[in-house]
Simulated scan of single mutants.
Amino acid sequence: MTARAVVDPAGDCPDPGARALVAAAFAAISSRYVLARHQIAAALLDADGGIHIGLHLDAMVGRAAVCAEAGALSAARLATGAELVAAAAVRYPKPTEPAVARVVPPCGLCRELLLDHAPGLRAVVHDGTRLVLTPLSGLLPHKYVGTKWPAALTR
């Protein structure tokens, strides 16, 4: 079976930082895509310029699946204590879909998780016209704030 050429969505990013994140996530999922196993890769940018990659891990039991953003967050925290400043996730197309990868926003669970660890994080999302960096807190305006951690860690 020959590999098909899939369009990289990074070209739709006017912001150079967003473009680099999308390109990194696209490169990761392009090399690791497996139908029904690995469909999304995510990239997190830290304040020191490091990019940390995570891969979606599907599972027979849906609850056991791990989102790419969670993998990238774990990779980032293993590599550095630097503040995390931006995130992007790219979904690779199934063989039955047009050969265009697309940027996807974090799911609700990942929005909560990322904001727990990086309250100022911005995410690359499509605004209906183009890809933009937007505060993740705007995608989750009523974040759960419990009493598990000091308030300073959850803002």
Rank of each mutant, 00 (worst) to 15 (best):
M1R: 13
V6W: 00
D8Y: 02
D8G: 14
P9H: 08
P9V: 01
A10D: 02
G11P: 02
G11Y: 10
G11K: 08
C13K: 09
P14Q: 08
P16Y: 02
G17I: 12
A18W: 11
A18S: 04
A20V: 12
L21W: 07
V22E: 05
A23V: 05
A23F: 10
A23N: 12
F26R: 06
A27R: 14
A27K: 15
A28T: 14
I29E: 09
S30Q: 13
R32S: 14
Y33C: 05
V34T: 14
L35W: 03
R37P: 01
A42H: 06
A43N: 05
D48Q: 15
D48A: 13
G49M: 08
G50Q: 07
I51S: 02
I51G: 00
I51V: 15
H52L: 05
H52S: 08
I53L: 12
L55Q: 07
L57H: 10
A59C: 13
M60A: 14
V61M: 03
A64L: 11
L73C: 12
S74C: 02
A76S: 04
L78G: 09
T80N: 00
T80V: 09
T80Q: 07
T80L: 09
G81T: 15
A82R: 08
E83Q: 15
L84Q: 11
L84H: 01
A88V: 12
A88S: 13
Y92W: 12
Y92D: 01
K94A: 14
T96K: 11
P98C: 09
A99F: 11
A99W: 13
R102K: 04
V103K: 11
P106W: 06
C107N: 09
C107V: 07
G108C: 07
C110S: 14
R111S: 05
E112V: 02
H117S: 13
H117D: 12
R122I: 01
V124Q: 00
V125H: 03
G128L: 03
G128I: 00
G128E: 06
R130M: 03
L131R: 00
L133W: 04
T134M: 00
S137V: 13
L139R: 01
L140H: 15
K143M: 04
K143A: 11
K143H: 05
Y144I: 00
V145F: 06
G146V: 02
T147N: 13
A151Y: 07
A152D: 10
T154N: 09
T154I: 02
R155F: 06
